[in-house]
């Protein structure tokens, strides 16, 4: 697979991710689900680009994209966990 083909395929994956991520957010009315969907597709595109035998700059760029995706994914999971757990009740007043 040449680098040019790989780039086009990666671009197609990004486009599909943007489209379906927005649609998931709209259809389920859960923006976090849409964002996670988009991030998975961005990760796939990053992995495809990472395979290219490019310059160290290209490698660093692909790695940075993947790192951003990981950090954003971690943040989303934490946010979802925080939203899922009800806030602790205030302590009862002592007699």
């Amino acid at each position: 697979m040449t680098d040019a083909v790989r780039d086009v395929v990666a671009l197609g994956v990004v486009a599909a991710g943007l489209l379906s991520g927005a649609a998931v957010a709209l259809v389920t009315r859960a923006p976090l689900a849409g964002l996670q969907w988009l991030l998975d597709f961005l990760l796939a595109a990053g992995l495809l680009r990472l395979g290219a035998t490019g310059t160290p700059t290209a490698l660093a760029t692909a790695a940075a994209i993947v790192a951003v995706r990981q950090v954003a994914g971690l943040g989303l999971r934490r946010a979802r966990a925080a939203l899922a757990v009800p806030a602790p009740e205030p302590p009862a007043p002592s007699p």
Partner: peptide, 28 residues
């Protein structure tokens, strides 16, 4: 690369089906 791309295509097709049939977050 083919496996990763196939995974994306399959996920996209399943997304299209789910977006029409059911709209639950758990399905996605």
């Amino acid at each position: 690369a083919v496996i990763i791309f196939s995974g994306c295509v399959i996920a996209f097709v399943r997304f299209l089906v789910l977006a029409v049939r059911e709209r639950r977050v758990s399905s996605f």
